[in-house]
Design a protein around this nucleic acid. Sequence first.
DNA 1: TATTGTTATACTCTATAACTATA
DNA 2: TATAGTTATAGAGTATAACAATA
Lengths: 153, 153
Amino acid sequence: MVIPAYVFDRLLEISLLLHADMARAFAGTGLTASRTHLLWELHRLGPSTQQALASALKVTPRNVTGLVDALESHGYVERHPHPTDRRAVQVTLTDRGSRTMAAMESDREQAAAELVAGLTEQEVDEFGRILTSVADRLRRLVEAAADETEEKT
Amino acid sequence: MVIPAYVFDRLLEISLLLHADMARAFAGTGLTASRTHLLWELHRLGPSTQQALASALKVTPRNVTGLVDALESHGYVERHPHPTDRRAVQVTLTDRGSRTMAAMESDREQAAAELVAGLTEQEVDEFGRILTSVADRLRRLVEAAADETEEKT
DNA sequence: TATTGTTATACTCTATAACTATA
DNA sequence: TATAGTTATAGAGTATAACAATA
């Protein structure tokens, strides 16, 4: 039993469609996929240091500096002194940032509903269950491959 | 009925895992995700002009120039004069390029088998069917959003 | 006139390395 | 000595605009 090729084609198509739609939706807003990902983590975590954001996004601290610079200049986030650690910066959402995330959350829910309109609850559950199983196996495969690469080093 | 949040989390996780694995697998090969995508299309389409590749990849011709430059310098593709149109270039896979794609194809099949090990044929079929349905609806949503944006312009 | 591919220019994301201020 | 964030530098992907050769 193998994942049929058409499933890969659909996944690739979904990825390209989402990319195109983001480019369209972000035009003129000062947002990009990476910047929005940072906003999303900030929304989830609450006020955070740039180190915490770097871990959450799995990118370097230097990279976070650039993303926060861009988001700050467009008014989505603010840098504040950290209350207890004078080395660190605390990044917070501004009102604009909070409103943007709230709007995105409700857009996402609406889109999520439209995508599965016509499917039964059982079908959606089954889909989620298989997706989770595939993600679990993929995680193990990727970790095994990474370990193997490391051993060679 | 709405797609549950954990399904989005799994999809995001899969996307991040694949990205990390590609970065690892491509180290030292001169390949990247974008360059591999071009090789894949070339493998699928056969010898192609850069215009054809730009359409297939949905990027600008200028972008293809850069990708083909990089792939050529690493020996994966070659530029040849087009047999009938002296303006155009025909891009072909080299032996190295063909061998690389063949290896990737078999790797992909093996990984695809491991990801669904433990699932029944019926479950995989069901998964593919729902994925197709979701992709169809997503395509329509994205097109509708794009049309709406265009009307405002 | 239209098309193919290139040069010129610019923006974004990402990484490593060196450095400053602080813990 | 270790950590948080910055400056410096570099590579990769992407885009628009102007241009030369050819159709």
